[in-house]
């Protein structure tokens, strides 16, 4: 009996701050949803797809991933998911069925998101229009199997542990929510981020170097970075294209001025 009470108290104490803060306004969830750029990948923007109903084809060197429906629909979307299932999916890349997601879904970045923030996003998603759209399986290279993912995760966690998590608001926006690494850091042959070359660009994705070096953002002024994140304009007057244009439209242009300034300062200083 005593151990049971102890265990009960432990979970209650752990849960209290979560639920106390998780019960926030929908605006907070919506803002975090923009910071995490869920819209861009989970909407088939090119074909005027239903918002968040998935079906977006993500072409990668490992094949084509077809993004899932994350609307509030109970069958096709996340409508019937429990909070635990949602947190487990976002932080650990494990679907309610127990199957592992592929890291095309950036749980490897989202794992540092706080539970409160994840639940705020879920709360916002539950307010969105349900869609019953279902999609076919990914079209991947023959050697990729979900069953390998636990091993992949283990190796990836081992390698990433050498690179400590950067802790401040801007790093949280850039590294965790914005998951900028996923495109702007090169990957090894197993598809794991090579953190030795953090933010030095990914040639196969045509994602440029965004370090403060000369090759990267070294000669960008503060106002040029502001224009990039708010309007998608590059220093030469061109406009960003393709996936980055979506990142600007659905995420960075929605940042608060406080987050924008913090990120700019961070990007111009970090190694």
């Amino acid at each position: 009996m005593y151990p049971f009470i102890q265990s009960y108290l432990f979970w209650l104490l752990l849960a209290l701050p979560i639920f106390a803060v998780a019960d926030n306004s929908e605006n907070r969830g919506e803002y975090l949803f923009h910071l995490a750029n869920c819209y861009g990948c989970h909407t088939d923007v090119e074909n005027n797809g239903t918002p968040l109903a998935g079906g977006r084809r993500l072409e990668t060197e490992f094949g084509t991933f077809i993004t899932p429906n994350i609307t509030s629909d109970e069958e096709a979307g996340i409508g019937s998911w429990t909070d635990f299932q949602f947190v487990n999916a976002v932080k650990h890349g494990i679907a309610p069925s127990g199957l592992n997601y592929y890291p095309a879904f950036p749980y490897t970045s989202y794992r540092n998101m706080t539970v409160n923030d994840i639940l705020a996003i879920k709360k916002y998603l539950m307010t969105t229009q349900p869609s019953s759209l279902k999609h076919p399986d990914h079209e991947l290279k023959f050697y990729l199997f979900r069953q390998f993912m636990p091993v992949w995760n283990w190796i990836n966690n081992y390698l990433q542990a050498r690179h400590p998590v950067r802790i401040n608001r801007a790093a949280y926006v850039v590294d965790t929510l914005g998951h900028c690494h996923e495109c702007h850091t090169p990957r090894n042959f197993l598809g794991m981020l090579d953190m030795q070359q953090r933010f030095q660009g990914n040639e196969s994705l045509k994602a440029p170097d965004i370090t403060p070096s000369e090759k990267g953002l070294g000669d960008w002024s503060k106002s040029e970075l502001e224009e990039l994140f708010t309007e998608g304009i590059l220093p030469d007057g061109d406009y960003v294209s393709d996936h980055m244009a979506e990142v600007v439209e659905f995420s960075t242009s929605q940042w608060s001025d406080e987050d924008l300034q913090a990120v700019i300062t961070f990007l111009r200083k970090v190694d």
């Binding site: 045509k206 309007e231 406009y239 393709d242 244009a245």
Partner: peptide, 21 residues
Amino acid sequence: AKKFGKESCGSCHKLYKKKDN
């Protein structure tokens, strides 16, 4: 000018231009 840039160059590049090499 900001609105125009977003609605013309920006929206066209989003759908119809690949990233630069």
